[in-house]
């Protein structure tokens, strides 16, 4: 609102006309191609996850522990690939296929931490580990607490 009033002398009509021009000039994202690669890469990461699950279950771990062990291995692999500068190349064509699996979460932690390494261990690496992961944990933990609270009240 306030923002619109400050847009120099152009006025609302010029702004709307221009937004229309941009819409026509902008290329559309290749939705089908992007979705295809997101599906293939995301699905493949899940197959690897399933393989790890089966492996850990065969070692005698319970389903929760096997799940945690799987997450740990995937997180390790993703962190390593991020450090090697490979994960972002995967992300270029996989899009959400490399963001949505737990490996994407790990990449979102490592990438800023690595990039801000030169700003020191505390304000660089350690603080930046949570620049994207922090919000995920905040919303995750708060939602989880709310669910616990509701469960407590209704049982």
């Amino acid at each position: 609102m306030d923002n619109q009033q400050h847009l120099n002398q152009s006025g609302q009509q010029a702004i709307q006309e221009y937004q229309q021009m941009i819409k026509q000039a902008k290329p559309k994202p290749p939705v089908i191609k992007n979705s295809f690669w997101a599906f293939v890469v995301g699905g493949t990461i899940c197959i690897i996850g399933q393989g790890l699950m089966n492996l850990f279950t065969a070692q005698g771990l319970g389903s929760l522990d096997a799940s945690a062990a799987t997450a740990t291995v995937l997180v390790f692999a993703s962190a390593l690939l991020t450090g090697l500068g490979v994960y972002n190349d995967l992300g270029k064509f996989a899009g959400a296929g490399s963001i949505v699996p737990i490996t994407g979460f790990a990449n979102a932690m490592v990438a800023p931490a690595l990039e801000f390494k030169r700003e020191g261990m505390v304000f660089g690496v350690a603080a930046r580990l949570f620049s994207i992961a922090g919000p995920v944990l905040v919303f995750g933990f708060v939602t989880s607490w709310l669910i616990g609270l509701v469960t407590f009240i209704f049982t």
């Binding site: 902008k26 290329p27 991020t82 500068g85 994960y87 992300g91 064509f93 994407g104 979102a108 990438a111």
Partner: peptide
Amino acid sequence: ERQFRAPAEFGNQRALT
């Protein structure tokens, strides 16, 4: 990129624009 957008190692897709 790291000041205005995302660090280079972050696996996102850059917009066509």
